[in-house]
């Protein structure tokens, strides 16, 4: 069976500086892959390249998503195809209510897919259900997107967007950064609730602690722009104990 996500020899650079130096990665439907690595190894670059940020230039390689060449698509087309990136630093959008933003996003994706817009009652029900699980208040839904949100609220809001947009592939870019234990648990529970045989996750993190809550099927170590080691969930524990020093040297 073809894998949901196939990354082959992916090279990418920004401002003449090569950051990804040949990534190979395959993620099957329903799998959770963790990508760990030291700072500056290219973790965030990989997530942004997958979502289509155009400041990164892909110089070589291929990304297939359910057999489609992802790199040929605009960011909004990737979203409609089912790719979701949870940002490490979610952006504030003053003057646009969270609820309006969710509805605009969802219906834009449905339109791109040739589906009808979701009815307001159906949408309200969907958001209400998802918000409750993430401990997101009605007030937060009415507020402008991420404006005045705490770090934890912003991350929960990312997961809410993910729950509402219902992607096939979710890339979580250091979703654990800036979270205390309680917030981490809420976010992890939110992610776990969305795990399903049709949905895959790429969880990017520096620390092992997130992976205690979101238990991965596969763990990769990214260093120097390449995946230098792949293993099971026990690899994360090994990294926690020994650090990244071996890999930094190896890369």
């Amino acid at each position: 069976m073809t894998k949901m996500l196939q990354i082959k020899n992916l090279h990418a650079r920004i401002d003449e500086r090569e950051i990804l130096k040949g990534i190979d990665l395959e993620v099957g439907a329903g799998e959770v892959h963790a990508i760990m690595g030291p700072n500056g190894s290219g973790k965030s670059t990989l997530s942004h390249v997958l979502a289509g940020r155009d400041e990164y230039e892909v110089t070589e390689g291929q990304v297939l998503f359910n057999g489609v060449d992802l790199l040929e698509l605009e960011p909004e087309e990737r979203a409609a195809a089912g790719v979701f990136l949870a940002f490490q630093y979610p952006i504030e959008v003053p003057g646009v209510a969270n609820m309006t933003f969710l509805k605009t996003s969802l219906n834009a994706q449905r339109k791109e897919r040739g589906e009808d817009a979701m009815s307001t009652p159906e949408f309200m029900k969907l958001v209400k259900g998802a918000a409750e699980k993430l401990n997101i208040s009605q007030e937060m839904l009415r507020r402008p997107v991420n404006v005045g949100f705490s770090g934890g609220e912003k991350k929960r809001n990312e997961i809410l967007q993910m729950a509402v947009l219902d992607p096939k592939l979710a890339v979580l870019d250091e979703t654990d950064s800036g979270l205390d234990i309680d917030a981490l648990k809420i976010v992890a529970d939110g992610v776990n609730a969305l795990r399903s045989p049709d949905r895959s996750f790429v969880v990017i993190t520096h620390y092992q602690r997130l992976l205690e809550h979101i238990v991965p099927d596969v763990v990769h170590v990214l260093a120097g722009g390449r995946i230098v080691k792949t293993g099971g969930k026990e690899l994360a524990l090994e990294l926690e104990a020994r650090g990244y020093a071996d890999f930094v040297e190896a890369a």
Partner: peptide, 22 residues
């Protein structure tokens, strides 16, 4: 900000409009 909105599925033109409004 434009990328954030587009990554959620909002087409470029509409995303720009939203940011101008914002």
């Amino acid at each position: 900000a434009l990328f954030y909105l587009r990554s959620r599925g909002i087409p470029r033109r509409q995303a720009e409009r939203l940011l101008i409004e914002s």
